[in-house]
Design a protein around this nucleic acid. Structure first.
Lengths: 225, 225
DNA sequence: GCATGTTTCAAACATGCGCTTGAATCATGT
DNA sequence: ACATGATTCAAGCGCATGTTTGAAACATGC
């Protein structure tokens, strides 16, 4: 049975491992976490990872799949709300709202770790795709991406389908990289002498959204040769 | 002396290793390359890596430092040309030209491997910063970034300094991620049923530039709440 | 043509990793 | 109280990787 003594502070060994994994992955990145470090942080024996999760990849998969699901759920809810509001007013969704729905899933005060974890997942998948990153991206994120692009397209009808695809992916790239800057490098803050500071969440949110809205904006900004 | 037989096709062992490293890093990503694989591709003994480069990190550093320098040089030349032209016409540089100078260093037909190598370097630095990634970013790329932002700011005087910093970094993120999509994942092509295809270099170049120009564009695209 | 410094090579070494093992401990039903 | 199954634990196995080694092969100066 899965119960320690009554009033035991720590949860299950299994849950302790999952929590420790989420913490460590957020702190050290995916490659930086070892079975030994995981067990130590969770305060359990190393073999517990294999006992409860079969292997380390499986634990990692569970952790990141949940992060992906939480994020997707949050954004789908936002999209539904945006579409409902647009429907009652009999108009297309506002670009600003659609972009905000995307960004808010990463940059919000409720779930401060989610953004950086997702960024780790996506960057890891780009740097070194594995079975489990592929599984999460394909099973949890692809459907959402298509759904999101459908709504997005209605907000930016002046773009054709190809452009919507391109700009969606470029948007994802910009957001992921800015999230990772915040944690690993601090390059933006360093180069700007602290003027541009991703640690300031409201600044982060505002700069990100205004950049993205502009990038999707109506074709009045470009002055080609 | 560093010479094999006369008319020997292969270069130095040292150069053979460097070439093999550049090839393999572009193909397999940074983590996917081992000393053994490197030696095999170069057709030399494994110990040659340590004999000629002291250790593997040092070889990697040399390879990527040169890639960084080539890229930066190309862009500095472009910037100089843009500024000269702007000066003769007594005007600020055109945003379109400045963005093009950035993108062209990655997406061009002269050096097809450079873009993906740089993307690998930057993403690696974000996913798992090490001594040698830090060294290259700080020593080879930071100065350029500041120089580039100075020119950029003159092309988009309607943005303040903070916004320029933010958008420059977001631009870098978007470009890096789209480069890596092209190689590792193919997600964009998959999700769009082939409509958006980064392998098509001219499409790549065009979509990237129009996205970026729009994102810096004058503040007419955003419709905040 | 031999002596000397340089380069190559097969083999082994050291380390860190994920994972397994078999015994010990714990929780529970009867 | 005992039996049974679930869980924990210290120890170590197997493997891949970067690195070292000491001898052999090579090139060069005198």
């Amino acid at each position: 049975m899965r119960l320690n003594h009554v009033n035991e502070l720590r949860l299950d060994t299994r849950d302790a491992l999952r929590d420790a994994a989420e913490e460590l992955y957020a702190e050290k990145g995916i490659d930086g976490v070892t079975t030994r470090g995981l067990a130590e942080r969770a305060g359990v024996n190393m073999a517990a990872v294999n006992y409860h999760f079969r292997n380390k990849d499986n634990l990692t998969l569970e952790v990141f799949r949940d992060v992906a699901r939480r994020t997707v759920k949050r954004r789908l809810d936002s999209l539904a709300r945006i579409e409902a509001e647009a429907a009652t007013e009999n108009r297309a969704p506002h670009l600003w709202d659609v972009v905000e729905a995307f960004v808010d899933a990463y940059v919000n005060d409720d779930t401060p770790r989610t953004g950086i974890l997702l960024a780790h997942l996506v960057l890891q998948h780009r740097v070194r795709p594995t079975e489990w990153t592929r599984a999460i991206v394909a099973q949890e994120l692809d459907d959402f991406a298509l759904r999101y692009m459908a709504v997005l397209h209605r907000a930016v009808p002046h773009l054709n389908e190809r452009e919507v695809h391109w700009r969606y992916h470029l948007m994802v790239g910009a957001v992921m990289m800015s999230l990772s800057d915040q944690r690993t490098d601090g390059r933006m803050k360093r180069l700007s002498d602290g003027l541009a500071n991703p640690e300031d969440r409201s600044q982060f949110r505002q700069e990100l959204i205004s950049f993205l809205v502009a990038s999707f904006g109506s074709p009045c900004g470009g002055d080609g040769p």
